[in-house]
Each structure stands twice: as structure tokens, then as C-alpha cells.
Simulated scan of single mutants.
Amino acid sequence: MVDWDEEVDINRRGDALDQVQVRLRVLQPDLLFARFRFDCNWTQPLRLREQVELTVRNLQVDGSPGIKLHTTSNWVKDSSMDVIVHFPAPQKENTEVSFAINLNWPRRFKPLVERTPDRLTVSFKRPTGHVVSKLVLPAGTDAFAEPVGDPALVKVIPGEDESGRKTVTFESFNLPARQPAGVRLELKG
């Protein structure tokens, strides 16, 4: 993985609109797919899992969205979903592939909006060059935030978006393989 650039917009119900731009370097000949796991921190009922919407699109050289890619998804637990992104043709070794993942997940952050600490973490099978995940908090809220993972590798940055909503961003450079990185949150007040 070269880059993971994510923005998660959380509303007052805990619904999350997760938008990720992925850039990866192909390290094996004829790569056919890429696999990801997304999760939440509570056991969701089937009716909510069935409402999760996923779209993956190629990204053009200029960053504009391209053709929708075929995906396969499977719930491995009541809180974790595996996603396989299928490429239309085998990807050649030593090339780069870019695509955008859009995930609309009802009540993903239910613990957070119910005033229980919640988290968002990432971990990759291979070393990753740059990871950034920005969480846009529900309107009118703020949060306490702590890094998850090696403090030397994870930087947590509070901020605001253009509409004045509070944000918490975590960033990591040169994240080692299988090293979790992220942020743990608790809403204030």
C-alpha cells in the first residue's frame, strides 16, 4: 500500500459515510483483486448490516472517478465485513492502482454517539507509506481523542471542517506491516 486517504462523516445517529482513496503498488505478477476488512465496535443486527452500501470506482490519473469496479463482500462477524475489489484485468507487477471506496454504514459509530468510547483503526499486511483518516464529528459535538498504536508512528490532529464541525484526524508515515494505527474517541459533555 502506498497511500490510504480516508474521510469518515459521522452524523448524530452514528451513521457513517466513509470515503477512502487507495493507491497501491502491485508487488506480484498479475494481481486480480485487493482485499479489505471494515468493522465497527459493536455487534450489529442483521437489519442494519443489510443496509450497508458499498461502491468502488477506479480513479483516473487526474483524480476523477472512473468505472465502477466489481466487489464481493461477506460479513465475517456481526461487526466485520470483508470486501474484495476485483480488477477488470490482471494488474502488472511494479505498477500502481488507484481507486475510491465509498461505504455508507448505518449506525457504525453507535457507541460513540451514545457516549461510549469508540475507535477507528487501520492495519495493513504490508508496510504503508502514508495513512490519513479524518473523522468529521456529528454537528455540535467535540471529542477527547487518543492515538491507537505506537505513539511514535501515529499523530492525532484536532480541527474543524469548512462548515465548522469538529474533526479528529490521525496520520502515520511509513506504517510497518500489521501495525495497528488509529484514534480512540469519546464525545465531550
Rank of each mutant, 00 (worst) to 15 (best):
Q21N: 15
W75N: 11
L103E: 04
N104M: 01
S98Q: 14
V8Y: 01
W42M: 06
N41A: 12
V154P: 02
G159V: 03
N41H: 15
D82P: 00
P127F: 08
L27Q: 12
P106L: 03
S98V: 05
T169M: 13
P138W: 01
R49Q: 15
V136I: 15
I10V: 14
L153G: 01
T116F: 09
L135F: 07
V8C: 05
G14E: 02
V154D: 00
R23S: 14
F99V: 08
E50V: 01
G164P: 04
V8P: 03
A145K: 09
W75T: 09
V183C: 03
P147N: 10
L59G: 04
A100H: 04
H70N: 14
L153I: 00
R57I: 00
R119L: 13
T71D: 07
V85Y: 04
P147C: 08
V183Y: 02
P90T: 13
F170D: 02
P29W: 00
R126A: 10
G189K: 14
N174K: 14
G182S: 14
L17Q: 06
R47W: 11
S73F: 11
L24A: 08
V148K: 07
F87Y: 15
A89E: 15
W42S: 04
R12Y: 04
G14A: 03
H86Y: 09
D15H: 07
S80W: 10
C40D: 06
S123G: 06
F124T: 05
R108A: 09
F124Q: 02
L153M: 08
V20H: 00
T43K: 13
G140D: 01
F144R: 15
M81V: 15
N11G: 00
H86E: 13
P151N: 14
N102L: 13
R23G: 05
N74Q: 14
V76G: 10
P88F: 12
R178P: 02
D118T: 07
L54C: 11
S163F: 01
T43Y: 13
Q21C: 05
E160F: 11
S123K: 05
D3Y: 10
T116M: 08
V52R: 15
V22K: 03
